[in-house]
Write a protein that binds this DNA or RNA. Sequence first.
DNA 1: ATATAATATGTCAATATTTTCATATGTAAA
DNA 2: TTTACATATGAAAATATTGACATATTATAT
Lengths: 186, 186
Amino acid sequence: MTNLGYALLGMLAYEPRTGYDLAQLMKQQVGYFWSAKHSQIYPELTRLESEGFVTFEVIEQQDRPHKKLYHITSAGLEVLRNWVTTPAESTPVRDELILKAYCIWLADPGKAIELFKQEELRHRQQLAQYEQLYIWGEENLVKEQRSKSSPLFGKYLSLARGISYEREYAEWCRWVIEQLEKPDFF
Amino acid sequence: MTNLGYALLGMLAYEPRTGYDLAQLMKQQVGYFWSAKHSQIYPELTRLESEGFVTFEVIEQQDRPHKKLYHITSAGLEVLRNWVTTPAESTPVRDELILKAYCIWLADPGKAIELFKQEELRHRQQLAQYEQLYIWGEENLVKEQRSKSSPLFGKYLSLARGISYEREYAEWCRWVIEQLEKPDFF
DNA sequence: ATATAATATGTCAATATTTTCATATGTAAA
DNA sequence: TTTACATATGAAAATATTGACATATTATAT
């Protein structure tokens, strides 16, 4: 099993979804911890199906093209459950903006400030979006007595990380801008 | 030019290094923003050399095998400088631990606590290492009047991010453990 | 003596991931 | 009316990345 496979199973464990849904989810709601393009997702779903970890039903629609709704099977739940608490290998990080920060001494400070202002905005917007999702999720988790076996519990934990990640990132951008605005001697 | 190419040029802009040095650096000091294995680094250096962005000199050693010390060229500095302030495409994130958190509702809370305790430790250790590097770097940057065109400036900015990233990560792990230790009803 | 680790560079096969092309439906905008 | 966009799935080519194999030197530990 690949990490992408576990990621898809993890999302399908919440509720049945189509390949398109999964791709959208990765672009929006879970992008802070996993992402993949549709061209990688569709073949992976086919593979998961051939191994019996998911099944699908074709849904005909009037307005739109037909779709394949994927469900996780008990075999899929089983492998997912086994994987969840095994030690994670730290996935390598590649962050272009921090690499740019590392090289910023070569750049014109004015242009650098522009770059980091754009990035700060991007992360603040993402932060606001995650905060909305979080508020909604927390209310519902309380209704379920904060059960650790409720699917909402996983969303709650990971979303909390998405929020603190985006906040930390935005604040670092702001701090970088401050450093760039300071005069060399002070 | 690839992102890996820029990463290598960025590191070589600080000082000449061997492929081995660059691989070590990615494993340790710059791992929070870029990483690559030696099997990817050596061919990329060859490519950079063929395009005139780096040159190398062979250094014979008594104790150890010979090595190739790579230097960035003025052409290399030029492309790097142009790239630094162009908008960054957000590099996709893939974080296995957060994915596991997302699926944690399927797991035994006791096992989950173990997992997050290990991860918290890992990030606290990395944090301590980065903090040491930061203290050293900051002292030296002050000596250079906090010049924004000093190579230390880039290290300072990026290392600050490494530190806040690891701290935020460790604190999230701690918070997750607290959530897992809470009784379902309270 | 022998094994292991660190230094040092490289190739090659296997995976993982992205980009591009292809197709189809219906809606909204220019 | 043609263009763009959102929904929906898929194949194929091109890149990026990892893991395994290969080799050589010296120091250190067993």
